[in-house]
């Protein structure tokens, strides 16, 4: 029933009542549609809530279960007896060097590749092919990257290196799968990430800036160096931060390319800060969590939750930098 009719029915005949009532009042059909629109809006909000609330609950749960071990000492001590006691220093420092190593390889190549795609390449089949390979590379499963790292870096590159540096009479000088091979594998995996994000940052610099620079007689490279890069610096930095978080969390690519479950790390001195050489297996947070969560029997629950919480905390911490940087960047942008 129509609301206008209801209110009018007490005072006047029905035909008059419809005139007295608001002529723009929605009909029953329109109100049914509006109700459906409203209901669907809440259903979709529900999807968001389904996504967000249980996850926040799970993360809070993990942190609560890990709370008894979460101290600064836990981060600073080395793991003892297969991680059943002690802290997480050795895997943490391994992850740190892995991230640095992969950045050294991927950041220059990725940023230059993005410069090529955004500033140099003309529309055409080559640009098109490169774009497709970037998306394909981003979609390659992480375990396939691991196989590639094994096939290319461990089985082909390492023997070549050993042919140059290793002393055949002293086996300890031989390089094994380790930081170098794992960093290279992670670098290949992160290449599309950094290309895409840098390209986006470069694309956000208005064309007029470049044109103004060219009009002053600058060459392409001068324009890129002085105008484009300096104006997209924060955007590029955001991409690098995202690369860091991805490098720190990945497990599958380093499974066969150098990560190990146990490596002795000194408890004090410089050897604690610089424990791994590039040709030695290393420990990493993700690998540590993988092994202790299902391969060591009688592992105390709290140690499992502890390392999961530290890894999650690390990733969220790194990512929040990227978010803050982006919010700050948007507030500052003047074009």
């Amino acid at each position: 029933m129509n609301r206008g009719m209801k209110s009018g029915a007490t005072t006047a005949p029905e035909t008059l009542a419809t005139f007295e009532a608001n002529p723009f009042a929605p009909s029953a059909f329109e109100r049914r549609k509006a109700r459906r629109a409203n209901r669907n809006k809440w259903v979709m909000f529900g999807f968001c809530a389904v996504l967000v609330i249980p996850l926040v609950a799970i993360l809070v749960d993990i942190f609560f279960k890990a709370a008894p071990v979460l101290t600064l000492d836990y981060l600073w001590q080395n793991p003892v007896s297969k991680g059943k006691e002690g802290g997480l220093w050795a895997p943490l420092v391994g992850t740190f060097y892995l991230v640095i190593g992969s950045l050294v390889f991927v950041a220059p190549v990725g940023i230059l590749a993005a410069i090529y795609l955004n500033e140099y390449a003309r529309e055409g089949w080559l640009n098109r092919t490169i774009s497709i390979t970037v998306t394909s590379l981003a979609g390659v499963p992480s375990i396939v990257h691991g196989l590639f790292g094994l096939g290319a870096f461990v089985l082909v590159m390492l023997p070549a290196i050993n042919g140059l540096v290793a002393d055949a009479r002293r086996p300890e000088t031989k390089w094994e799968a380790g930081l170098l091979t794992a960093s290279l594998t992670i670098a290949v995996m992160n290449l599309p990430v950094i290309i895409t994000s840098t390209r986006e940052a470069l694309g956000a610099v208005p064309m007029a800036f470049r044109e103004a620079c060219w009009n002053l007689g600058a060459t392409r490279w001068q324009t890129v160096r002085t105008i484009v890069l300096s104006n997209s610096f924060s955007g590029i930095l955001t991409g690098i931060i995202l690369t860091i978080s991805r490098a720190a969390g990945e497990t599958a690519p380093i499974l066969f390319t150098g990560a190990t479950f146990f490596k002795f790390v000194a408890d004090s001195g410089w050897a604690k800060i610089l424990p791994y050489s590039p040709g030695e297996p290393f420990m990493a947070m993700s690998m540590h969590l993988n092994i202790i969560s299902n391969q060591i029997s009688q592992m105390p629950e709290v140690m499992k939750f502890g390392s999961a919480a530290v890894l999650i905390g690390l990733i969220l911490f790194v990512n929040s930098f990227a978010i803050v940087l982006r919010v700050w960047l948007r507030g500052r942008k003047r074009w």
Binding site: S245, G249, S286, N290
Partner: peptide, 10 residues
């Protein structure tokens, strides 16, 4: 951003 190993752990 949550790494896959953490999802496995969950």
């Amino acid at each position: 951003a949550i790494p896959s190993i953490v999802w496995g752990f969950i």
